[in-house]
């Protein structure tokens, strides 16, 4: 089963990372899920694929009553991000799913009805969790053409979807980045291949560098915190992306 780790807690606000499943078959990419709790309300970021649903659900329920989850934030449309949607809706048919308007007609193929989806405009929007508001930050073309990240100004946490992702080998899979230079080697190939637009990357780096971020939480790999956040943004800004070199 996956592990649920609280990465932020202040008053009624909590961020819980659902990470690392030792029983996960090797053919499935490892994913991180994040639960944002505000009092009796919760939102789940990128709930993951169908196959990992039992592990994710089990880990969440060890920390939070899953029936508190009122909404899902889907950064984009990939199966490792949102193919478990039908199962979450089976658990709570009233659950909302925030997703880019671009994927509003595609993601329902995983499940849901017209009342399930809250489609987000390209410029982003506020996403409520209990009494507070998070911000959906545009991250289009990084890598999906309709892509959002989620920013919590109180916790100073940015859920960054595939940006910041690293494919970590066994033994180097800690929750946080401990050695940036070592870690970033495992992120480089991923970003070069998956991130398709230099211009979109520059826009994103400029946009997020204006935000106060203590933790940058990707969907794969370890969490960047403290000075590693700015280090990552600078590294990404300078990285050549969107090119595939075939020998």
């Amino acid at each position: 089963m996956k592990v649920a780790k609280t990465i932020y807690q202040q008053g009624a606000r909590r961020w819980i990372a659902i990470v690392r499943d030792p029983e996960r078959p090797n053919y499935l990419i490892d994913t991180n899920e994040y639960v944002v709790v505000d009092g009796g309300h919760a939102l789940l970021c990128d709930p993951g694929g169908l196959e990992v649903f039992p592990a994710v659900f089990g880990a969440i329920s060890s920390e939070v009553d899953p029936s508190r989850i009122e909404a899902i934030f889907s950064s984009h449309q990939d199966p490792d991000v949102i193919s478990s949607l039908a199962l979450w809706l089976e658990f709570n048919p009233r659950m909302k799913c925030y997703v880019s308007w671009l994927w509003g007609g595609f993601i329902p193929h995983f499940g849901g009805t017209a009342s399930t989806f809250v489609t987000m405009p390209d410029g982003g929007m506020e996403v409520p969790v209990g009494g507070s508001r998070l911000i959906a930050v545009p991250a289009h073309y990084l890598h999906s053409s309709g892509n959002f990240h989620l920013y919590d100004a109180n916790a100073k946490i940015l859920f960054s979807g595939d940006v910041g992702a690293a494919l970590l080998p066994p033994g180097t899979d800690g929750l946080f980045v401990e050695n940036f230079d070592q870690h970033i080697k495992f992120a480089e190939a991923f970003h070069r291949r998956w991130m398709g637009s230099e211009k979109a990357k520059r826009d994103w780096c400029e946009r997020v560098s204006k935000l106060e971020i203590d933790m940058l939480c990707p969907q794969h790999g370890a969490i960047y915190r403290g000075e590693d956040v700015a280090r990552f943004i600078n590294w990404f800004d300078e990285l050549e992306i969107g090119c595939l070199k075939i020998d």
Binding site: M1, L50, F53, P54, A55, F57, G58, S61, D65, L87
Partner: peptide, 23 residues
């Protein structure tokens, strides 16, 4: 298929057993 997955959840999510049983 959904039921088979939920049955796996039932064995892994002890804390949520009551709500899973209802489901």
């Amino acid at each position: 298929r959904n039921r088979a997955i939920m049955e796996r959840v039932d064995s892994e999510a002890a804390a949520a057993r009551a709500s899973i049983q209802a489901l």
